[in-house]
Design a binder for these strands. Sequence first.
DNA 1: TTGTAAGCGTTATCAG
DNA 2: CTGATAACGCTTACAA
Lengths: 340, 340
Amino acid sequence: MSDLLSVAKLAGVSRATAARAFSSPDLVRPATREKIFNAAQQLSFRPNKVAQQLRSQATQMIGVMVPSLDNPVFAEQLQAMEVAARASSYSLLVTTSEYSPSREEEIVEEMLRQRVDGLVLTVADAGNSAVLEKLRLENTPCLLVYNPPGNSGYASIGVDNNAAGADATRHLLTLGHERIGMVAGPLLQSDRAQQRYEGYRHAMRDAGFKPRPVVEMNRHTQADLASLTPELNGPDFLTAVICTNDLLAISLMGELQRAGFSVPGDLSVMGFDGIALGKHLYPSLCTIEQPRAEIGRTAVQTLLAMIRGESCTPAPLPHALRQGESVGIPTFRKSMLGTS
Amino acid sequence: MSDLLSVAKLAGVSRATAARAFSSPDLVRPATREKIFNAAQQLSFRPNKVAQQLRSQATQMIGVMVPSLDNPVFAEQLQAMEVAARASSYSLLVTTSEYSPSREEEIVEEMLRQRVDGLVLTVADAGNSAVLEKLRLENTPCLLVYNPPGNSGYASIGVDNNAAGADATRHLLTLGHERIGMVAGPLLQSDRAQQRYEGYRHAMRDAGFKPRPVVEMNRHTQADLASLTPELNGPDFLTAVICTNDLLAISLMGELQRAGFSVPGDLSVMGFDGIALGKHLYPSLCTIEQPRAEIGRTAVQTLLAMIRGESCTPAPLPHALRQGESVGIPTFRKSMLGTS
DNA sequence: TTGTAAGCGTTATCAG
DNA sequence: CTGATAACGCTTACAA
C-alpha cells in the first residue's frame, strides 16, 4: 500500500507538504494541492490511521463492553452508540463479557493496550468490581452504562432503577394488585436487578403490603415456569409479577399461556427495559421503558466530553411506564366490580 | 504511559532485550528476564498495540458491518463473532450501515484506513453493490454474511435462502395450505428476501399452485396489518403467510391477534431467521432457523483462514425448520376432517 | 508556502 | 545471550 512519501515524490513535493494537503489543505497553495491529490489518486493512496494514531497518541476509538448482545437492550444501545460515535468520527471496538468478571478483566486490559481513547462499560456489579478497581489507577476515561452510579465512583448513564422498580410496582398497586412478586435472573450478577428489587420492596411497604422474596431464575433471559408455580397456588397466590427484564417477562408469558394460564387474566406480567419487540406482541408487554437509544447516544457524548477533559456528572435519564395488554385488573377485583 | 525504553533503562538492559523478554522470553536469560518483568511492573508498563500494529503491518482487527443491531439476527451473529474473534486474539471494529449504500461506502473506506486485517460485511444487495466493486481493487480479504453468494464473486457464509424459502413453503403445503402468501420488508433492500421469495415461487409452482405477489411492508421489522387485509378477505383469502424475517412475523402475529384474528386459526404465520425469542412466545413462532451463532463463528474462522492466505470456498450452512404453534392446519381442512 | 528532521513505541536484522 | 540501529507511516516544530 502506497504511503505519503511516494505520493509526495510523485507530486514533486516534500512529505510534509503532502501531509499538509490532507490535514490542513488551506496551508498549501491550490496548485500544489491539486498535484498532490492527483498523485494520491494515481497511487490509490489511503492514509494510514495506525500511523496517525501512533504519532498523535490518540486512536479515536472507544472501547465498548456489554454483557451480551443476545439481549436486545444491549444491542439497541450499541446501535445508537455506533451512530453517535461515527457522527463524531470515532470508531467502536466492541466486546462482550458474557457476565464473567474474568473476561471483563481480559477485555479491559486488551482495550487499554489498544490505547482506546475511552471506555464504555456495563459490568456485572459496579459496587464490587475488580476491573473498575484496576481502572481507577489508569487515566483512560471510563463511563458506565446501566450500572447504578454511586456504588463505584464512576459516572454512569442510565435510569434510576430504584425509582423505576417502585413505579412499576405502584402501577400494579394502583390497578388493585396486592400480591405482587418479582422475578429475576441470577441476582448476584446484576446490580441493576437488585436496585429494581429494592424499589419494589419500598413501594410495597409504602402501600402496607409485605414484599416477597425474589423468585430467582437460572438464566437471565429465560423464565422457567416451575420455579414460579409454588407462588401461583395456595391461598396467597400472586396476581401479578414484575420481571427484571423483558426477555424474562416475554418467555414467562409464553410459558404461562402454554400451560393454560391466561395473561393477564390469571396473572399480570410486567417487564423491564422496553425492548422494541415488546410493543408488537399480543398481549403487548407492559414494561418500564429505558430510553435505550438515548442512553447510547448520551453515553458516547458524555465520554467524548470526558476525553476532551471536561468533567461532567451525568444525571439519570428518565424512564417511562409503557402500558401494555399483559397487565390487567386482578381477578378478585374484577368480580367485585361485576357484582357491586 | 511508560514505554519499553523506560522499562529497559530501569532494568539496566537495552530496549531490544526488553522487547525480547516479552515476545520470545526464552531467548533471554531468566535472571535478566526477571529484572525486566519487575521493572515493567513497577512502571505499570503496558505494551502499545498501535505501535505493534504499525511495526508489524497487521492490526489483528476485523471490521464488521451489519445493517442494524436492532434486529436480533445480526446481534446474535455478532455475539458469536466476538467470542470467536477473541478466542483467536482478534478484535472487532463494529459498524452499522442502516441499509444505506452511502454509509456502506464510508464505513468500508474508514475500515481500510484503519488497516483492518479483513472485513465481514452484510450488504444490502451483493449483486449490485458499489462497495463490493471498490473492494475488488483492494487486497484486504472480505467475506459476506447472509448475502447470497454467487451474485458477487465474494465468498459468503449463510444458508441457501432459495432452498429455505422452498422448505418453508412446502411445510405449509404439506399441512394442506394452498393459498399461501409472502410478506417482506422493502424488497430492493434485501437480496436474501428476494431469494426466499424465489424459493417460495418455485415450491408453489411445483405443487401446482399459483404463487402470489409479495406483500411489501414499509419497514423491515414491523408489519402493518392494513397492507395485508385485502389478502385476508374475498373468496381467495390466504390461509398462511411466510414472512421474510422473524420480527416481521412476530409483529404481524401481534397485529392479527389484536384485530381479533386467531393465529393459527384464521391465519398461519411463519417467520424466517429463528431468533431466540421466537421459541418463547405464545403461540411460538414457526420459522426457518438460520444457525446464527454458527454463521458468526464460521465467518470469523473463514476470514482468518483467508487472512492467513488460505483460499477457501465455504459451503452453505444448513437451515432447519423450527416447528411452532403459529402454524396449523388450514381451516377448511379442519372442518373437512371434522365432518368426514 | 514549503522543506528538514525529529519523533510516536515497536520489532527485526545484524553484529558482538 | 545482548546491544545498536533501522524501519513502520505519519505529524509537527522549526527553518528557509
